[in-house]
């Protein structure tokens, strides 16, 4: 449906930005994410930043899973 990859904004000039994707740099448009700024992580699709990436969220994904698995287990014991 749609490939998109995360990239870090390393330069901004009006509605365009240079993003770094694992060392590769490309110009992308920020028209769909006007709030994006220097240093932000954005999701890039077909030459556009289409959404901001919550970097904190990205790091926490693993921790959150443990927390969930734990919560589900307690729920089960509580119900069981």
């Amino acid at each position: 449906m749609c490939l998109a990859v995360p990239g870090k904004i390393v330069e901004v000039h009006e509605t365009m930005a240079t993003v770094d994707i694992a060392g590769n740099k490309r110009q992308v448009s920020l028209i769909l994410t006007p709030e994006a700024q220097l240093g932000d992580y954005v999701l890039i699709h077909a030459g556009f930043a289409i959404q901001m990436i919550d970097e904190k969220e990205a790091q926490e994904t693993l921790a959150l899973f443990e927390e969930w698995a734990e919560k589900e287990r307690q729920l089960e014991e509580g119900l069981g």
Binding site: L3, V5, I21, A22, G23, N24, R26, I44
Partner: peptide, 12 residues
């Protein structure tokens, strides 16, 4: 190389 991996992900 990570840059090749990242470039390929960008281009599909």
């Amino acid at each position: 190389l990570p840059a090749v991996q990242g470039g390929c992900a960008m281009l599909g």
